[in-house]
Design a protein around this nucleic acid. Sequence first.
DNA 1: CTGTTAGCGCCTTCAA
DNA 2: TTGAAGGCGCTAACAG
Lengths: 355, 355
Amino acid sequence: MKNRPATVSDVAALARVSTATVSRALNPASAELVSIEARERVFAAAAELDYTANHAARSLKTRSTRTVAVLAPEFANDFFMELAEGVERELEISGYMLLVASSVNSQAEEAKRLALLSRRLVDGIIVIPAGPRGEHLQAISDRGTPVVLVDRLVEGAHLDAALSDNEAGAAELTRALLSDGFSRIAFVGGDVTISTARERLSGFARALAEAGLPADAGSTRLGGMGIEDGHRRMDEILRSDDPPQALFAVNLLVHLGMQRRLLEAGKDADGRPVSDRFVLASFDETPYSPFLPSCRYTASQDAAGLGAAAARLVLERIRARGHATGFAAAPGTAPAPAEARIVRLGTTLIRHPRG
Amino acid sequence: MKNRPATVSDVAALARVSTATVSRALNPASAELVSIEARERVFAAAAELDYTANHAARSLKTRSTRTVAVLAPEFANDFFMELAEGVERELEISGYMLLVASSVNSQAEEAKRLALLSRRLVDGIIVIPAGPRGEHLQAISDRGTPVVLVDRLVEGAHLDAALSDNEAGAAELTRALLSDGFSRIAFVGGDVTISTARERLSGFARALAEAGLPADAGSTRLGGMGIEDGHRRMDEILRSDDPPQALFAVNLLVHLGMQRRLLEAGKDADGRPVSDRFVLASFDETPYSPFLPSCRYTASQDAAGLGAAAARLVLERIRARGHATGFAAAPGTAPAPAEARIVRLGTTLIRHPRG
DNA sequence: CTGTTAGCGCCTTCAA
DNA sequence: TTGAAGGCGCTAACAG
């Protein structure tokens, strides 16, 4: 117990070969250069000593960790974590490992941890941005660690990204409500500094316009992306005169907050639940959506697909970086950086029977 | 763009000092040993070059990463991720960073990734075990990387752990149903190879016994911890003759599966939802619990608290390890390893008005 | 107060 | 096919 972990030299000594041979034998890529005999002795010794390579030392030398990080605003968020699982499955195919870190919903922390991660802990980073700016992300990318965005875009960075087609999804959701006969629809929640909210609002507005309706048909109530915000907006709606019957929630959390407020509202004088007065459509499907009383439509995002797409993007950048020469380009002729690629994934309209 | 990141030597050259001085100046612990002048020149140079320490090199030298990992069976699980956030908040206090990795619900992967993580990527590991055995965890711990268990215990390892008081929580939940007048209660779901399920079943049985009821009052239906399992068990219950009215779900997923089956069942001949025929109690509270039709009681676990407790346990071990001498103890007198400590956290009974 | 030196554990030419 | 040697970037003695 408490033995200091074995090193290559330990293995070399036990196997009666040099450390170079140990390294070669243990590394699949170079194992063929070692005689069968030596190789077996090395394997035996390694097993005997329970040897595992020191990751830090190896990556210091090879400048590669075969590891990618996902930096998410928070851990306890199903959407982010399903996305992470999508990343993981894709990475596995290429023999990479995933590490997830949190930016604690703060751009400052995001910058700090990004810097830490980028210095030889991981080969590439997939970021779900915590805020609207991206200069710090661009900086890390410029210094050689590929950075890919998912879910949201940011200002001030020109990076690869995997995103849902929020505009189209929102338009589809809106059209579904329209074709159910609702002509007054309120868009609820949404922080316009966040790209997803902007895109969804834009899709909503487009669908209304296409139907010949004014964009404000339904006293839209912007503001916020969290549970509390949804709760507050719903409260306002309940207090307002002649509120619209159809409501479009910008995301899951706002949706949940709204439903909570409706649950609190209980029943009408005539004994019918207040929630029956409304029909909701919302971005994001969850296992619980069928249980939310007035939820009729959701636009389900392919979280895992976004993750997988993002993973493919980083892996490509990581491999490309490998080919980069150390030579400085002639002054003024910096090689045009490959265009930032944006992958858009469609959403799926889901109808819930009860809503 | 694409400058190779600056190193200590780069900074040293620009600041016209030695690398040792750079290291000292940049390291808060030793910064006072450097003259103000030199320190400022170093800071200026570091800022100028946008220097960030290479984590791999540093940890290779210092044998410390100021990082702790959480290894969870999966990412997309609210309970695990809230637990991770608890860990993170506690680590932050001590200036440690959190990395989360997944064991993909496999003991084999768990062992592999644990080994990887333990080799200089992190100083300590908090594991939510993926399976019933723990020899591989013990092995890592024995080799010097502190390992702490959370949520579940395993056979074959003698490690610190932070756990919910499942036995008491289950008893409390059962008593609540009993005092509501139900004398036939079925325990639904539960894999007896998992310690949490065993403990909950035991608490359930104890509460029944204390009430003078036989343990099988209610045709208990064990088996499984996932959504599908809950769905299947509920299906069986619906098909059975004279099923018990009160049901105890072993955890959130089983609970959700049961509710799903009830939702599918729709309404009775008399127009009342089938879900009205049952009253459920379940481990694990979520933001969605109030919306689950027949959910009357939940035993809410303090996920973040478990994480924080586990974090404190690893940090203590990490610090203790620092004091360990390199000297081998006299043969036969290996210092008695400090007892493995088990922290138990209470659960909170929540009553849901509608259930 | 500062610089020189020597590795941490690993991989990778370069010679043999 | 193998070994010797150097160095990745950093820090911790040890001198000065």
